[in-house]
Write a protein that binds this DNA or RNA. Structure first.
Length: 463
RNA sequence: GGCGACGUGGCCAAGUGGGAAGGCAAGGGUCUGCAAAACCCUGAUCACGGGUUCAAAUCCCGUCGUCGCCUCCA
């Protein structure tokens, strides 16, 4: 059985079949760049990075598009407050976001389009919608006509009638239906604006994704992703526009990640309860956040707090323990079949879990079982050569999840001195000068070097 | 109010008809001069109440609770 993917559109798992064999067209909604990104953004980016890496492991070539919304009301407002240029503001945060993705070991998208650089495409798209009767101009604005297509609401499971009451929606007299949404917004004085058939203005939020997806991935794509807070109205509107434009199904699978929660509430800019990626990375390794994401279902809400981060960090240490070297001067195992079988079982279990809607928590479970067998073998005296095949599998599969299991490394020069010290300490221990031997170990620990004593000698590593 | 998701051991969490994975924490033990690491051992009436079934954590109905969307949001 191949990969099964849960699609929001059908609310069930479906067999994953791409439009073109072995190729995946993936579009993920990126951030609006008006402020520092927080760990919730990181979670979403991590989820789709994990999905992408697994698809690649499964032999797919993935064309991954992630956009930056670099012109909109919030950017303009922020720029006004800071008395700076909105384009420069956006540029600053785009650069910062790209660096965060790198720091988080998230593979760069194949293409990162920006709304401001795709204006011709956007205008062509809107023009076509007007020509086809799906949109209308009203005083320099252009609105999408939600009643024109009968399936509006199919992604979010809403009916126009249910939303009509819409007490919280400010009714705009110029709209035919209160749910009609802006494709193009006429510019006010001093705002960034582009020429269009409807006068100076800028694109609405939803249209840019449809236009850029079409421009870079074609009329139909395999996966469209984003946070589940985008289901309505953003993705609903994207479907409406794109399918009105092409007459074809837009995305085959809609994948949405759950929200990151802080103190029981969604982390968001408007609630002000956020932790920036910058702050997180200053205090924790990038792998810790990825580990948190991996250990839970991507569709479920994920609670973010110190205890959970701590659990993730200790879980990482456990994975790392599987990669440690053999005990010094060990005799070796007579039989390594347990290791071979464990490695084999780990790979097939890993694949079965990940095939099932990217069940990374289940996949991790299989990797932990491999760790246990490796550690058992080491404790039983396996040599490095004997451990290596299983460790290679562990390293490969954790790599598929995007974990680096990075072990801090000092300089080569320092290594030589530490080896010397540990070696000398070995003689000190043989002479049973425990006080001196402990002093060396303690002081090395203060320098970040963990020394571990075993029967045949000592090993050490940077921590 | 409408729509949707979720509720599994102290914590995180997999499993969605027939043996309740895994991790963290805790306790006990092995190893060790000590420490650390590692290894071994110990734990769940699957929110509650009904129902379907030979069989339910898993399906159906109801109750309670948590969260999300309905307005900008990853």
């Amino acid at each position: 059985m191949g990969i099964q993917v849960y699609s929001t559109l059908t609310r069930k798992k479906e067999a994953f079949e791409t439009l073109e064999p072995n190729k995946v067209r993936l579009y993920v909604c990126g951030p609006t760049v008006y402020d520092k990104a927080h760990v919730g953004h990181a979670m979403s980016a991590l989820v789709f990075d994990i999905i992408r890496r697994y698809l690649q492991y499964r032999g797919y070539s993935v064309k991954h598009v992630m956009n930056y919304t670099d012109v909109d009301d919030k950017i303009i407002n922020r720029a006004n407050i800071l008395a700076c240029d909105p384009f420069e503001l956006a540029e600053t945060y785009i650069q910062q976001y790209a660096q965060h993705l790198k720091d988080l070991n998230i593979l760069p998208a194949t293409i990162n389009p920006r709304a401001t650089r795709e204006m011709d495409e956007i205008i062509r798209f809107i023009t076509d919608l007007i020509n086809k009767g799906y949109a209308y101009e009203a005083g320099g604005d252009v609105y999408y006509r939600v009643e024109k297509k009968s399936d509006y609401g199919k992604l979010s499971g809403r009916k126009l009638d249910d939303m009509r009451a819409g007490s919280r929606i400010e009714v705009d007299e110029r709209k035919e239906n209160p749910m009609d949404f802006a494709l193009w917004k006429a510019a006010k004085e001093g705002e960034p604006a582009w020429d269009s058939p409807w006068g100076k203005g800028r694109p609405g939020w939803h249209i840019e994704c449809s236009a850029m997806s079409g421009a870079h991935l074609g009329e139909q794509i395999d996966i469209h992703g984003g946070g589940n807070d985008l289901i309505f109205p953003h993705h609903e509107n994207e479907i409406a526009q794109s399918e009105a434009h092409t007459g074809k199904q837009f995305a085959r699978y809609w994948i949405h990640n759950g929200m990151l929660q802080l103190s029981g509430e969604k982390m968001s800019k408007s609630l002000g309860n956020l932790i920036t990626i910058e702050d997180f990375l200053a205090a924790h390794p990038a792998d810790a956040l990825r580990m948190m994401v991996l250990n839970s279902g991507y569709r479920n809400p994920l609670t973010f707090n110190d205890e959970i981060i701590g659990q993730a960090e200790r879980g990482l240490e456990r994975l790392q323990s599987g990669l440690k070297e053999a005990q010094p001067q060990t005799a070796g195992l007579a039989d390594t079949s347990a290791l071979d079988e464990a490695a084999k079982a780990a790979r097939s279990g890993f694949e079965a879990s990940m095939d099932d809607d990217f069940n990374s928590a289940g996949a991790l479970g299989h990797l932990f079982e491999l760790v246990r067998v490796i550690n058992q073998a080491r404790a039983d005296g396996a040599t490095d050569e004997q451990l290596k095949p299983a460790q290679d599998v562990l390293e490969e599969l954790t790599g598929v999840l995007g974990l680096t299991l990075r072990v801090e490394k000092g300089s080569q020069a320092a290594d030589a001195f530490i080896n010397l010290l540990v070696d000398v300490r070995q003689d000190v221990r043989q002479a049973k000068l425990w006080e001196l031997s402990d002093k060396i170990r303690d002081q090395l620990a203060e320098l970040g070097v963990q020394v571990e004593d075993a029967k045949g000698g000592s090993t050490w590593y940077w921590k």
